[in-house]
Design a protein around this nucleic acid. Structure first.
Length: 206
DNA sequence: GCCAACGTTGGC
DNA sequence: GCCAACGTTGGC
């Protein structure tokens, strides 16, 4: 399947610090600095065998979590992302077996609604090379693709949706990338943040 | 390399 | 529909 878009275009070594350590707050880094050394560096490192966590956004009117559950093999390619930071996460950060929160943006309410799993790692997004596609990028060279995607498979819905309002009200989630950098369509999630959201979803709604 | 103009996301 | 918070573009 190829929905018009999953999320609108700008729409995803060895670490010494423990995995649970908070990243430094996002700050301006020189344009010349490779992204692996920038504010999102932590998202590209992992201990051997470590599972990492992510959040991917989709407008439910375009492609909802229910649509993913209903898709063949409960799986879809996460195409049409046209933001370079999100692309870096898709191309280099996400690994098979990583888990993602599925977030409904531009929704009522906007909320994390489900869990999916990365089942195929970053590969070129063919929609960028399709002149008939809404997110065709004439500057993307098929021999050296600019845009990448992963495949994700639905795991399960959350016991209940956890809204952005709730997330913003939870002190343990104050540093979540979703809150800090609101517009990115693919962002990393720290394990304590993951656990906190799961716990919220299993507790009564506020 | 600076930065003003412009485009986009997405909450509200 | 408004607009804050970005990212990108291109003139200089």
């Amino acid at each position: 399947m190829t929905p018009a878009r999953k999320s609108a275009p700008a729409a995803k070594s060895v670490k010494k610090a423990p995995a649970a350590k908070k990243p430094a707050p996002a700050k301006k880094v020189p344009r010349s600095m490779p992204y692996e050394q920038g504010a999102w560096a932590f998202a590209f490192t992992r201990a051997p065998g470590e599972r990492r966590y992510w959040l991917i956004k989709s407008e439910p009117d375009v492609f909802s979590f229910s649509d993913l559950v209903a898709a063949p093999k409960r799986t879809t390619c996460w195409d049409s992302v046209r933001n370079s930071s999100a692309r870096n996460f898709l191309r280099d950060g996400m690994k098979r077996g990583d888990l993602c929160f599925y977030y409904h943006s531009n929704a009522d309410p906007s909320a994390i609604v489900g869990i999916c799993e990365v089942v195929r790692e970053g590969y070129p997004d063919p929609t960028a090379c399709d002149p008939t596609h809404d997110y065709f990028d004439p500057k993307s060279d098929p021999e050296h693709p600019t845009w990448f995607m992963v495949d994700v498979k639905a795991v399960r819905p959350l016991a209940r949706a956890v809204s952005l309002t709730e997330i913003k009200a939870e002190p343990a989630l104050a540093e979540m990338a979703l809150v800090r950098t609101g517009r990115l369509s693919v962002v990393p999630i720290l394990e304590p943040e993951w656990d906190a959201v799961i716990a919220m979803s299993e507790a009564p709604a506020p």
